[in-house]
C-alpha cells in the first residue's frame, strides 16, 4: 500500500486532482480563472503555500496536540499566505491586484487544510513536500486550463495575446460568473467521462478531509455533494 515517491507526486496531478476529482478549492478557481495568467499566478501561490505548510505541519506533527490541531494548521497556513502576499505586493503588484481578495482567502482554501489533515499529519516531511508539490501542480494545471478556455472563448485572447478576437466576436459570457460555473461543470463532467465514474467514491471521502466533517450532518447522509 506504500506509495513510491513518484506516485505521491503524480497523484495530485491526475488521479486525485484536487479541483476536478476532490472538488476542493472551488471558490478561487471559479473567481480567478478569467485570464490564463491569473490561473498560473494563483496556482503558483497555492503551490508555494501548500508545499511549505505541508512541510511544516508534517515536521511538527508530533508536537501539535491533536485537540487544537486545526487552529495550529490555520496559523501555519496563514503565515505562509501572508509571506506570499507580501512577496506578491513587492514583486508582482499587477498580479496581486488581479487576484485581490483571493490571495488572503488561500487560508480558507480547503485544499490546503484538507491536505494537512489528510496527508501531512500522517506522513514524512519528504512525502508531504512531494504531496504538496503534486497537489499544487494539479491545482495550477486545472486553474490554467480552465482559465485558457474561458479567456480564449470569452475574450478571444490567450495570455493577453489576441488570438481570435479579430476573427469573430468573443462570447463574453464565458468570462462572467455563469461561464465560470459552466466551464467548471463541463470539466468535471469530462473527468467523470474519462474515469467512467470511478472518482465518485473519492468525492464522498472528501468529507473526511473537510475540517468541519465531524459536525457536518451531511456526512451521515453520505457526503456533502452526493
Amino acid at each position: 500500500m506504500k506509495k513510491s515517491k513518484l506516485q505521491i507526486l503524480t497523484n495530485g496531478i491526475i488521479k486525485e486532482n484536487p479541483v476536478l476529482v476532490l472538488v476542493l478549492g472551488t471558490c478561487p478557481t471559479l473567481a480567478i480563472s478569467t485570464q490564463a495568467i491569473n490561473g498560473i499566478g494563483m496556482g503558483a501561490c497555492v503551490l508555494v503555500v501548500l508545499t511549505c505548510s505541508n512541510i511544516i505541519i508534517s515536521a511538527l506533527k508530533k508536537i501539535i496536540p491533536d485537540t487544537v490541531r486545526i487552529p495550529c494548521y490555520i496559523t501555519v497556513i496563514a503565515t505562509f499566505v501572508t509571506i506570499v502576499q507580501l512577496v506578491l505586493k513587492a514583486y508582482a503588484p499587477a498580479l496581486d491586484k488581479a487576484l485581490g481578495v483571493y490571495i488572503p482567502l488561500i487560508v480558507v482554501n480547503c485544499i490546503i487544510l484538507g491536505r494537512a489533515e489528510a496527508f501531512a499529519n500522517k506522513n514524512s516531511v519528504v512525502d508531504s513536500a512531494l504531496d504538496g508539490i503534486g497537489m499544487g501542480l494539479g491545482y495550477t494545471l486545472t486553474a490554467t486550463v480552465m482559465a485558457c478556455i474561458r479567456e480564449l472563448i470569452g475574450s478571444g485572447t490567450l495570455f493577453g495575446a489576441t488570438i481570435t478576437a479579430n476573427l469573430f466576436s468573443p462570447f463574453t459570457i464565458l468570462i462572467m460568473a455563469p461561464g465560470g460555473f459552466f466551464v467548471f461543470g463541463c470539466l468535471i463532467a469530462l473527468v467523470n467521462k474519462l474515469t467512467k465514474g470511478k472518482v465518485k467514491e473519492k468525492r464522498v471521502n472528501k468529507c473526511l478531509t473537510c475540517p468541519g466533517a465531524e459536525f457536518c450532518n451531511e456526512v451521515q447522509e453520505g457526503g456533502c455533494d452526493k
Partner: peptide, 10 residues
C-alpha cells in the same frame, strides 16, 4: 439571455 449577455453588441 446567454446571447444577450455574451454578444451584447449584435
Amino acid at each position: 439571455i446567454a446571447l444577450f449577455i455574451g454578444f451584447a453588441t449584435p
